[in-house]
Nucleic acid binder design. Structure first.
Lengths: 269, 269
DNA sequence: CATCACTAGGTACGCTGTACGCAGTTATTG
DNA sequence: CAATAACTGCGTACAGCGTACCTAGTGATG
């Protein structure tokens, strides 16, 4: 029933069970001895990302990635312990794309960078990355990223608010709120185009397929709000509007965070 | 290279291409003629959800679901056009779990329900559902839900803020901000346990596998913030604390939304 | 009762992730 | 310098996936 395995409940558990796939970041990129690997993690991640960007996450198969970098399928397993390890590589590579060196002049609280501008930069960079790589959301949902680039970003993020003298839990709340909002907002933005990618349809075809259903719903008269949305909503159709809408919503979230900070010392001299 | 198919670029596009998988909600649940189907959509969705809850989304295969309801594998395709259609059924079934009939006494703005309490109820219900079904996030990322239950919730949501006399775009911004935040927040909450589910490990095993890597990172001295998080953070370990933290963050988001509303007419008589 | 649209389900195909084993290559060691 | 051990590269093979296609049975309608 449970289908977890035929036997072996693993009664004797050593500290590091060799049966478990290892964390990829624990393995050295260059072997201590033996020939130099023909490929690098960056190259592999770039190839996988290129495929995912162009053909969707489902197109990222071990065979496909191996072909992309020009090696045998099983050779890939010399670089990556499992397919999830490949995903870890992709996640961390996208984390490396974000340029978060927003070392702004610290003017506001205490002495330090402008935390609001810092979080804003994190949010904008995160949104840009997620929009550039629509598949990232589904990968990030379900695995914390502890690769070198992810860790660097984490350090930068906490550095943005370090001078506020909050305890770690409060800092995590601030950052998590922003990151959560960004992820959720991008999910909404991507919902349409991601759906059409999964089914392999372009915008025209997707609308063509949905149109009869949408019309049926509107004619039923049961969904007045839905009718208004279809008839009146301008948001989903304007391209540049999304940036502005995101920015506005982000300001609301930052307002909320600012209101939750302990009373700011009087700025006046 | 593209491997999209051997031939047939589909040059002649009729208005409704029969090659496209149909929208499941367009197909009648009961056939007009012929024998009554042995199973219902609700039953199939419930079976799939049960499997996903218990064994993870990867365990939801057509064969497995068919076995669960006691029919042949291909029989399932009599009820569902494709596996994505099964996912649509699961999504809408979870939408049906949410009890949003929070018809509160309208006291605040104009005459209507308390929009803040309404959005709060939506957020709490959404979070509860997502926590009850960890796999839901990855399904929702990438497909808008237009099933009957989803539409009902959409109508209820817009109904919560209808009396505020906003235009449709502004209403969508409000609702999307809340929904986005909820989804993102739950993703953060679920990250840990979802990761361990994907790899089939329990909390103990996951920590055991990560422990050497975490220790290495801490000993490297390169990540001071990471060190502080591991050493000082109490949040991830306290169970009931998550509810409270979510509630606090949600209040921040709602504060931001309230601040963005047009000036409220003076409540004083 | 005959008809025929429908349901149920078996078989088969191309695809996936990956376990395993073998040959070739190179940094270290005697 | 030669031997060795550790490593890379990769072909084969297998179980499991989604699902196209086909056959047989069934029950409401005429």
């Amino acid at each position: 029933m449970t289908s977890t395995g035929p036997a072996g409940d693993g009664s004797t558990e050593s500290s590091t069970d060799p049966r478990l796939p290892p964390v990829i970041w624990m393995m050295p990129e260059r072997p201590a001895r033996g020939p130099k690997p023909a490929h690098s993690r960056d190259e592999i991640a770039a190839a996988a990302i290129k495929i995912a960007d162009g053909e969707g996450l489902d197109a990222v198969t071990m065979r496909r990635v191996a072909a992309e970098i020009g090696c045998g399928t099983m050779t890939l397993y010399r670089y990556v312990p499992t397919k999830d390890g490949l995903f870890d590589l992709m996640i961390d590579a996208t984390a490396g794309e974000e340029e978060l060196v927003v070392r702004l002049p610290g003017t506001a609280r205490r002495s330090g960078p402008d935390w609001r501008a810092g979080l804003r930069a994190i949010a904008q960079a995160g949104r840009a990355t997620l929009l550039r790589h629509p598949w990232l959301v589904s990968l990030q949902s379900g695995r914390p990223s502890f690769g070198p680039n992810g860790l660097r970003n984490l350090e930068l993020g906490f550095g943005m608010i370090d001078h506020l003298d909050l305890d770690v839990d409060q800092m995590m709340i601030m950052l998590n709120t922003v990151v959560s909002f960004v992820r959720g907002a991008v999910v909404a933005e991507l919902a349409e185009q991601e759906a059409q990618r999964r089914t392999g349809l372009d915008q025209q075809q997707w609308q063509r397929r949905m149109a009869p259903y949408v019309r049926k719903l509107m004619d039923s008269g049961q969904y007045p709000m839905f009718n208004r949305i279809i008839a009146e909503a301008k948001l989903p159709h304007s391209e540049g509007g999304a940036d502005e809408q995101f920015s506005l919503q982000l300001d609301r979230v930052l307002d909320g965070l600012a209101a939750d900070l302990p009373a700011e010392p009087e700025p006046g001299d």
